[in-house]
């Protein structure tokens, strides 16, 4: 009992000392970027660029996207090699999780596009996993060095407008391909009718994820806001966005895909 009290007192003292030290030392000098510049750069990525294998300068989100891809592929390969061969008829916890994940996207594809859903299921699975993992990725705050020598926390891949446009346009192309595969030229026409879809999809993703990024940037810009608050901010603006935007994009893709690929019978 006495030992526990001593440990508690030591822990409180160490924590208080760390807080006092952090507040006393500040950020190591005056910030070289104003909050306005930070916000602007978070949106436009004009200043802070990263070098991609020393070949070209890219926005940090490209490096984030590639890191997320690498992590996901390594995890998938490990699961494929170690877990999948041990699958049993009565699933364990990991198997159940994987089956739920695959079953969720497969079921969504089947329910929204009952007549043609093989490719759609695979696509929304990949897109869903990418959006969720990519958005949650910013919580880890992996650091990278910009070409100007500044330290930078890698953002969510889709908080970059280029990443959002890529996924929005690709989703639209998938919908278009479903229309063509299902109904030929008629499907192409009905898909082109929704020409605003790629823009709305892209900017919805971008706006939603950017808002989370901006709030997080703002919170971390001020030292005083960097305690306790990031927990709530991280959950609200990262995990919720990750879930909501994943659901919104795959649901829209599946819905439109099912609509344009549905066979139209001549009356």
């Amino acid at each position: 009992m006495k030992n526990k009290k001593t440990a508690l007192i030591i822990w409180i003292c160490v924590t208080a000392l760390l807080l006092a030290g952090a507040l006393a030392l500040g950020s190591g000098g005056a910030p070289h970027e104003t909050v306005r510049e930070v916000m602007r750069d978070a949106v436009l990525h004009e200043d802070n660029k990263l070098s991609l294998f020393g070949l070209i300068e890219v926005n940090p989100a490209v490096v984030s996207a590639m890191t997320v891809t690498l992590i996901l592929l390594i995890a998938s390969a490990l699961i494929r090699l170690l877990a999948v061969p041990r699958f049993r008829l009565v699933p364990g916890r990991l198997q159940l999780l994987l089956e739920q994940l695959v079953g969720l996207f497969d079921g969504m594809a089947k329910s929204n596009s009952p007549h043609r859903n093989g490719f759609l299921g695979a696509y929304i699975f990949a897109a869903g996993v990418y959006i969720f993992t990519g958005t949650a990725f910013e919580l880890f705050g992996l650091q990278a060095l910009t070409t100007k020598g500044h330290s930078l926390a890698l953002p969510a891949p889709l908080s970059d407008i280029n990443g959002a446009i890529a996924l929005g346009v690709l989703s639209y192309l998938v919908i278009l391909s479903g229309g063509v595969a299902g109904n030929g030229l008629r499907g192409l026409g009905s898909s082109l009718k929704d020409f605003s879809l790629p823009i709305s999809m892209s900017f919805r993703l971008f706006g939603a994820l950017l808002s989370g990024l901006l709030v997080t940037e703002m919170v971390y810009y001020y030292l005083g806001l960097s305690f306790v608050l990031p927990v709530a901010v991280g959950v609200m603006f990262t995990l919720l966005h990750a879930l909501i935007q994943t659901y919104v994009l795959i649901m829209l893709t599946a819905l439109f895909y099912g609509e344009v690929s549905e066979k139209h019978h001549a009356e």
């Binding site: 891809t69 994987l98 996207f105 695979a122 696509y123 990949a126």
Partner: peptide, 12 residues
């Protein structure tokens, strides 16, 4: 790359 990898390694 991610979609292909996820499809062959996990989804399929």
């Amino acid at each position: 790359i991610l979609a292909g990898g996820l499809y062959f390694l996990l989804y399929k």
